[in-house]
């Protein structure tokens, strides 16, 4: 079984509002999937369903288990960081290591201590005495010392400065990701994780509006920088979205062969952020 997460027609309603609206997708083993969407798009709800934190309709299987009903079994092989501030503030670093070591069967205390030794975090410190960046380092050190099959990161770097964010993702790729593990990330800072991802999934209004591997993006999407007459010609090809930059037009095309665009201007593969805007706004238009 290479599919780690399988969702078939998964929905989650809050009253009449569908936070997740009949979505289906699969996450294969060894992938790094970015789940991208605006606030209130249903990202967090979908992650909560995957983590067994909320019940949902439809069929959802994670590591072959029902995340809500077989949660304990599943959590032996899943780690998640929901937000930077969730470590209890009263606990000492050494106590935290003791606790995780005695409750998590796949936790390597020596690995965590190795990772912590590379930071300025002292074992006798309490979490409340640490800076926000250090708390994340601590959390990450614990998570990275757990031999898990799936790592879920929900806005892991929210509120952290840019140097720290770079280090965070650097560590994640170099020390953690080994091709066997699978990572699921949501973030607003798409640019920072773009090079990291093997797959992306856009979610808006509770629906998945794009689900693709990064390699497949250039085949389906193209961005054209154009002006004047060419712009008119290009517009007839039906761009998904168009925006103006310094008097020029930037058009995003979906499933339009690049040969048709040749000669009309500069052709690029859109960045994830631009593609996201094009998909969301294009769908709204």
């Amino acid at each position: 079984m290479s599919s780690l997460v399988t969702a078939k027609n998964v929905s989650k309603y809050y009253g009449n509002l569908a936070a997740v609206d009949n979505v289906s997708f699969e996450v294969e083993k060894g992938r790094i999937l970015g789940l991208i969407g605006p606030n209130g798009a249903g990202k967090t709800t979908l992650l909560k369903a995957v983590l067994g934190l909320t019940d949902c309709q439809g069929q959802l299987s994670v590591l072959g288990l029902d995340p809500f009903r077989q949660r304990k079994e599943m959590m032996k092989n899943i780690c998640f960081i929901a937000d930077v501030a969730v470590l209890p503030r009263w606990i000492r670093v050494s106590q935290l290591l003791d606790f995780v070591a005695s409750t998590h069967p796949n936790f390597s205390r020596s690995r965590a201590e190795e990772l912590l030794a590379a930071t300025k975090i002292k074992k006798e410190s309490k979490v409340r005495e640490l800076s926000k960046g250090m708390v994340t380092q601590l959390h990450l050190s614990i998570i990275m010392a757990i031999d898990a099959k799936l790592l879920v990161l929900d806005e892991p770097t929210l509120g952290l400065d840019i140097i720290f964010r770079k280090d965070f993702y650097g560590n994640l790729l170099n020390d953690y990701f080994d091709g066997e593990r699978t990572i699921l990330i949501t973030t607003h800072q798409v640019e920072e994780i773009e090079n990291l991802l093997t797959d992306i999934m856009f979610i808006n209004g509770g629906k998945i509006i794009l689900d693709s591997s990064m390699e497949a993006i250039p085949d389906s999407y193209a961005e054209l920088l154009t002006s004047g007459e060419d712009a008119e010609t290009a517009r007839r090809l039906g761009p998904l979205h168009e925006r103006d930059v310094f008097g020029k037009h930037v058009m995003t095309f979906e499933n339009v062969a690049r040969e048709k665009l040749v000669g009309l201007g500069e052709i690029h593969t859109p960045s994830v952020a631009d593609l996201f805007v094009a998909k969301v706004k294009g769908a709204a238009a």
Binding site: A82, D83, V86, H104
Partner: peptide
Amino acid sequence: KDKSILFWRSLPIT
């Protein structure tokens, strides 16, 4: 109140 529940619930404990 301190939101640590999400951390506790990230461990395999029912």
